[in-house]
Write a protein that binds this DNA or RNA. Structure first.
Lengths: 151, 151
DNA sequence: GCTTGACCTTCCCATCATGGGAAGGATCAC
DNA sequence: GTGATCCTTCCCATGATGGGAAGGTCAAGC
């Protein structure tokens, strides 16, 4: 099977399959004489595993752990559980951070007329001289990076 | 005031101040003869405004809107409110997405012994042949990008 | 006046996962 | 054999941020 079919079957784009190969997440495939990558059903299975883990928000690094645990038949389930629960914690920290942003904004928006007049508590809060706009200001040297909410 | 002092006073790093200037979010500053950027208290005020908006998760693009609304004394508060509420919606979509991931994982983790034995529902779910791991699979051609949960 | 350290400048690189696209070769269906 | 569709590699872009190098500037202390 060529890369396009493997992509179709696994839900991982051809571009990403090549990328995963380049960073060593998946091994280099067999090639045809012409240099085309060739995939087996087993490879597709692995790719699907990876896609599911991505859908759950695991980083490529964590996925590498998960894949090797998956392929280690003697693994201890606690090792898998640990990876999963650590990720849950990360997710929950992010959720809390986003919720604080959304909460602050909703509160400000509630107090804003939202009509044709110029006075607006939202702008005023952003422009205020006081410390921080969030209740717990993001620690300058904290462990949490900026949250990305790009679409 | 030099860039370092402006950074200190505003909470925006010197690196980011230069970046914001380079992309046109803030205007080019006056320079000393030696080429050093010079900032006024008003500039610092603007930078602090920007930092607060960043803390609330607004993108640089949205911040550009907010800054120009801020500086437009005749703005309609509804224009500010719209930007804010659109961002709240984005935040809430992200929150829901992260919550779904966390929920799925917590459920799987609950059913995993987490001991020395190898059998693990988490891995099994990732490796399963069924469709998607999340209840509503991320639409392949949807409007929502991948969620970033990097730290 | 000269040295030293702290500051500033620009420029390039890295992140992380992903896609776009170009240039060129391979394969396949007709 | 020809055109369409695939594949290859390579480079670039995203978004906000930091790291760091190479070199210029400035102020304080001697």
């Amino acid at each position: 099977m060529n890369i396009g079919q493997a992509a179709e079957a696994s839900g991982v784009s051809a571009k990403m399959i090549r990328y995963y190969e380049s960073i060593g997440l998946i091994p280099k495939t067999v090639r045809t004489e012409a240099g085309y990558r060739v995939y087996s059903d087993k490879d597709v299975h692995t790719l699907r595993f990876i896609r599911r883990a991505r859908d759950l928000g695991f980083s490529v690094e964590q996925i590498a752990d998960l894949v090797s645990l998956w392929q280690d038949r003697g693994r201890a389930s606690k090792d898998v559980k640990r990876v999963a629960l650590e990720h849950v914690e990360t997710l929950e920290r992010k959720i809390a951070e986003l919720q604080e942003m959304a909460g602050t904004l909703k509160h400000l928006a509630r107090t804003c007329h939202g009509d044709g007049r110029p006075d607006c508590p939202i702008i005023e809060e952003l422009a205020s001289d006081a410390g921080s706009v969030t209740s717990r200001p993001p620690p300058k040297f904290g462990t949490l990076g900026k949250i990305s909410v790009r679409e």
